[in-house]
């Protein structure tokens, strides 16, 4: 019975795949050329890299809602925390880190060398996003990677609580973005995230800086929250 059902799923997937392939090969060429529209307005966007122009200017509201999604995901993970009462209490301090085992010393040395370089590269990526590949997301991912490396090397404790500094840091970028959106929408003759002429480049850089810090904290938080539960579980069971 199980085998027959499995086979049915595979056959249905193959049929759907054939239909998708047929639809793609039969697709007429598009009459809307978004790339040309982006290129025509690129000078007014405040940046010279088209992907950044789309992300932070032409379709800035997509990015705004995406950051909200990330924040909601972090909140959702907090609600799944094992020790519900302890998590959100402001006074809770995590226990001090134990002395590292010998095999971690090499990793700690590596982390101490690499993490400053990663932070430097994140800063470069943030700045480079205005005119070439790079930007807030890649920079934030590097910062989060630095956080993961520090945690694995035993230099950064996992999040067993969600302290005020973390709350403030993970919401700052989003708040600034929302403020910019509200200000541009409220301005006379303004539309949502339509930056005033001449200010676009500066505003995009400020928004991206805030997003890098907050997204880096949120992405690192995804890992640090999950690794906290892992160590909690093994501690209580042993």
């Amino acid at each position: 019975m199980k085998g027959v059902l499995d086979l049915l799923v595979i056959v249905l997937c193959l049929v759907l795949g054939a239909a998708l392939w047929w639809a793609m090969l039969d697709l007429p060429s598009s009459r809307i050329h978004l790339a040309e529209q982006v290129a025509a307005k690129l000078d007014a966007s405040g940046v010279t890299h088209p992907v950044t122009a789309v992300l932070l200017n032409f379709r800035g509201y997509d990015t705004l809602i995406e950051v909200m999604v990330l924040f909601v995901a972090l909140i959702g993970m907090l609600t799944q925390a094992e020790k519900g009462s302890q998590w959100l209490s402001a006074g809770y301090r995590p226990p001090p880190l134990p002395a590292p085992p010998f095999h971690l010393e090499v990793l700690q040395w590596l982390a101490r060398v690499l993490v400053p370089l990663m932070i430097l590269t994140a800063g470069y990526l943030l700045w480079a996003g205005a005119h070439r590949a790079g930007g807030a997301f890649q920079a934030a991912a590097l910062l989060a990677g630095a956080g993961v490396l520090l945690n694995l090397a035993g230099l950064l404790p996992a999040w067993t609580t969600f302290r005020a500094g973390m709350r403030a840091g993970s919401i700052t970028g989003l708040l600034f973005f929302v403020l910019a959106a509200a200000a541009t929408a409220a301005a006379p003759h303004g539309h949502l995230l339509q930056y005033p002429a001449g200010w676009a480049g500066m505003l995009i850089l400020l928004i991206e800086t805030g997003l890098t810090l907050s997204l880096g904290l949120i992405l690192a938080g995804f890992f640090l929250l999950l690794s906290a539960e892992a160590s909690d579980g093994s501690d209580t069971e042993e």
């Binding site: 978004l34 789309v54 990015t63 972090l74 959702g76 995804f222 929250l225 999950l226």
Partner: peptide, 28 residues
């Protein structure tokens, strides 16, 4: 096409958020 590239960039970041939330639920 920079527009579809920007959309996908957004999508990658959202998918890691969904993965993290799914892992938290699975662990629970």
């Amino acid at each position: 096409d920079p527009v579809s590239q920007a959309m996908v960039l957004t999508g990658i970041v959202v998918s890691v958020a969904a993965t993290a939330l799914a892992l938290a639920l699975a662990r629970r």
